[in-house]
Write a protein that binds this DNA or RNA. Sequence first.
DNA 1: TATATTTTATAGCACAGGCTATAATAAGAA
DNA 2: TTCTTATTATAGCCTGTGCTATAAAATATA
Lengths: 141, 141
Amino acid sequence: MPEEKLSPEKQAEGFSIAREKQAVALMEDYVELIAELTDELGEARVADIAERMGVAQPTATKAIARLKREGLATSRPYRGVFLTAEGAQMAKFVYERHRTLVGVLMKIGVSKEAAEIDAEGIEHFVSDEMLAAFKKFLSDT
Amino acid sequence: MPEEKLSPEKQAEGFSIAREKQAVALMEDYVELIAELTDELGEARVADIAERMGVAQPTATKAIARLKREGLATSRPYRGVFLTAEGAQMAKFVYERHRTLVGVLMKIGVSKEAAEIDAEGIEHFVSDEMLAAFKKFLSDT
DNA sequence: TATATTTTATAGCACAGGCTATAATAAGAA
DNA sequence: TTCTTATTATAGCCTGTGCTATAAAATATA
Ligand SMILES: [Mn+2]
Ligand SMILES: [Mn+2]
Ligand SMILES: [Mn+2]
Ligand SMILES: [Mn+2]
C-alpha cells in the first residue's frame, strides 16, 4: 500500500489530540458506570463502582473526588454518588457512542464479547466525524 | 437496541485490559516513530522525535530512557536512538496495525486525515480478534 | 443498647508522563 | 583552533492514577 505520510505538524497534532482524549477517558468511564449502576441498583456506591471498574476502593474514591472537582458528580461522605446534569449528559453521550461502536465492530465480524471489551478502550478516541460515519454505516443496512 | 449487559466480571476485565493497553500505548508510538524517522532521515534524533510527538525535548528524552529500560531501544549520550530487534519487531507490527485500521476507517467513510488522527489513539486498543476481522473486512473487496 | 461487621475515608507510597529552566556536550563557523 | 550555536542531558516541579494499610463512620446483629 503506497500511503502518503501526514505532515509532521499533522502527525504531532494526532498525538496531541490522542493525549487530550486520554485525559478524559477515565472520567467518561466512571460517569457511564455511575449512570449504569444508578439505573440498575437505584444508586451508585463507591464499593460497587470500584468492583465494576476493577480497581481498589481508594482508587475509586479518588476518581470520584475528581469527578466532583470537575462538576460531573456530587456526593456526601458515606453516601452514594450522583451525576450532575452535565455528568448525566456526558453519560448519555458516552453510552450511545459505546453502543454505536460495538454495533459497528460486530457488523465487521467481531464477536460481541470482544467488541464490548475492545470498545471500552477505543470509544474514547472516536472523533465526531468518525462517529457520524459509524452511524451511517450502521443504518445503511 | 436491546443489548444484554456484560457480567460485572467481564466489564471489569474490559477496563482492566484497557488500562494495560494504555500502559504500552506510548511506547508503541515512540517505537513506530523512531522506525519512521530512521527510514526517512537515516537516523532518529531526540529533537526530531520530540517535534513529531508534539512534546518538549526532555519529555522525549525520558520516554527514550524508558524504551531503553524495557529493551526496545538503545542510545549513547548525544547520539541518535536505535531500535533493538524487539523494538523493530514491535514497530513493524504497530505500523501494519495502524495501516489496517486506517484502511478500515476509510472504507467505512472516514476521511483520510481524520482516519489517521483517530487511528493514532484507537490503534493501541485493537485486540488480535478485532485486527483479524479488520483484515478480512478489507480483503473482502 | 452494645457490639460486630461492612463501608468509606485518609495517609502515604510509587510510577508515568507532562512541563520549564539550566548545564553540559557536540558540531559548525570564524 | 577558538568561539558560537545547536543539541542533548539533568534537575526539579506538577498532576493523574494506581496500590496497601489503617482510621472512622454507618449499618447490621446480638
Ligand atoms: Mn471506556
Ligand atoms: Mn464504555
Ligand atoms: Mn498511536
Ligand atoms: Mn500509529
